[in-house]
């Protein structure tokens, strides 16, 4: 091969770059989905909607609530699952049941590197 002195280091850099996640995680403990601290099942059986729905849509729900609140003030959100009304509030509703943000919201968000900016203004319970 011609110019092997340049091409081979180049290829090594390429391979190192592309396989970054393979060697970056070497020696670290096997990843497991973080444990969440859920509300006492005696008191609350369900979240506002089904767990699957909450996992995928909680941010959309909060976004909707925020719009509702800013336009019309607090409204009641009817949950078919719980047969119950919930106040459209981040702090008073979500954080009432999920009172430890660090052991709930943050565990997921840190794992997936999401950083909701809500807490720039809203108070963490």
């Amino acid at each position: 091969m011609y110019d092997a002195k340049k091409i081979i280091p180049g290829l090594i850099i390429f391979a190192l770059f592309f396989t970054f996640p393979f060697w970056f995680n070497l020696g670290t403990a096997a990843y497991t989905t973080p444990e969440l601290e859920l509300p006492d099942p005696e008191e609350h059986e369900h979240c506002i909607e089904s767990t699957e729905y909450m996992r995928a849509e909680h941010m959309a729900m909060l976004d909707e609530w925020r719009d509702i609140y800013v336009r019309d003030g607090y409204q009641e959100y009817w949950s078919e699952l719980n047969q119950e009304y919930f106040l459209t509030s981040l702090t008073k509703t979500c954080m009432d049941c999920h009172s430890d943000k660090e052991k709930f919201c943050d565990r997921c968000h840190e794992a997936t590197a999401v950083d909701p900016y809500c807490w720039d203004c809203h108070i963490e319970p």
């Binding site: 670290t28 990843y31 794992a111």
Partner: peptide
């Protein structure tokens, strides 16, 4: 988009399984 959404927690578990050579399909 609503119906296409997926939960990222098992996705991360799958992805980490791949790069740590202990593949799982949660």
């Amino acid at each position: 988009i609503g119906v296409f959404k997926t939960d990222l927690m098992p996705v991360k578990e799958l992805a980490m399984g791949l790069v740590q050579f202990s593949p799982t399909v949660p």
